[in-house]
Design a protein around this nucleic acid. Sequence first.
DNA 1: ACCTGAACACCGTTCAAGT
DNA 2: ACCTGAACACCGTTCAAGT
Lengths: 233, 233
Amino acid sequence: MLRAMSKVNPSREAAARERRGLARDDIARAALDLLDEEGVDALSMRRLAERLGVGTMTLYGYFRSKDELLDAAVSEAAEDFVFTLPDGSLRERLRAHQQAARRLLARHPVIAQLRARQPVVQPAMFRITEGAMQILLEAGFPPDEAARVFRVLFVQVVGDALFNRDEPTAESRRRVRGALLSLPEDEFPAVTRAAEGIAASTGGPEQFDYAMELILDAVEARAARHSAASSHQ
Amino acid sequence: MLRAMSKVNPSREAAARERRGLARDDIARAALDLLDEEGVDALSMRRLAERLGVGTMTLYGYFRSKDELLDAAVSEAAEDFVFTLPDGSLRERLRAHQQAARRLLARHPVIAQLRARQPVVQPAMFRITEGAMQILLEAGFPPDEAARVFRVLFVQVVGDALFNRDEPTAESRRRVRGALLSLPEDEFPAVTRAAEGIAASTGGPEQFDYAMELILDAVEARAARHSAASSHQ
DNA sequence: ACCTGAACACCGTTCAAGT
DNA sequence: ACCTGAACACCGTTCAAGT
């Protein structure tokens, strides 16, 4: 579902900006700060308005609804995606791209959280897509398959941000392992045998890197099949 | 974070069940029905109590909080995971496992949605882990690496349920393609060129299958490196 | 002993009144 | 023309009173 991305009323906003220096982007940035600091549940229209020193209903002069404000905050967050296409092999380039995406999602966890609630279709987010698609097309993938490969990587990187821990600590690993070992061993032989490994796999850079290298193995192998085609483009 | 999975008070519950036929599982099942029917935002303690014909506060006699009730509802949902380990190659077995997981997540979208909000550590969910771990261990993966491979598959299947459409219709594809083609072509050359493919890759069984076969390519290749080790176990 | 209405401290948003 | 307090229809949960 595509959301309207235009301002509620440009001239009205311009007037408001002149009067009190408040612009749509300022509100979105303030919302993003609150989101980054205290999480997605901490953002309410009332709290944000208070922080900005305006009445709650003033926000509705800039955004039709809270959802529209959240979209704008995610868009603001996406601006922090920094990636310049490096030279190198397909693998090296995709690895660099995915690391940049991971850094963005680590800096703004709210992106992944909101992506789970509503499709985010903001031009700023497509900069991420664009980077990966350039790499894949240049490696010789036909556009349709390049899109499918990107989607796999996208699901993995956003899913990692959402489902995996930032870094499983010794304490969290111990806790998870304990929970797994308390399962009935006859019913869960494999889980109890691999409890240590499962606890370690619940997040962190090692798991992210393992996931990426695994997928890139397969992407590289498929790219080889297309390399002849790419030389004709 | 592990949550308490024990009842608030077993004897109290037994008494209540006798009196009105209401048990903890009944409430969790009713919550799951509401969740499946109307989505995660539709479930409120007030609405659920009304549906069950009890006072709102009665629910707090069975569950300490709404979060605990949601955990129980997910646990209830996980009971619907049906999977019997098939014979066949590593690839065939993992494919069957992931399809079973996908069916579960399609039947109860709330599992993926709640997994995004809070880690779900319920014994019922570990049946999914157990199935995959058995397959991977039997294929010769060492426990630690089997756990990492499972985690990649887990992130992909839950991420697919959460981020991808059930099935991109002709209409939704047209809409996404239109949005992509409206981006400035000089800034987004790859996205505009592959707009059709990107629109098609936003979900559906084809995309799920592509993702799985891609990842299974790599899993199979790595299994081959371990197959010598497995014959010694 | 068990159940639950009233109340508290919040929400997003509509509406009408304020300047 | 713009801003916003009051009000509405909801929340989850605490507390005390009801049976």
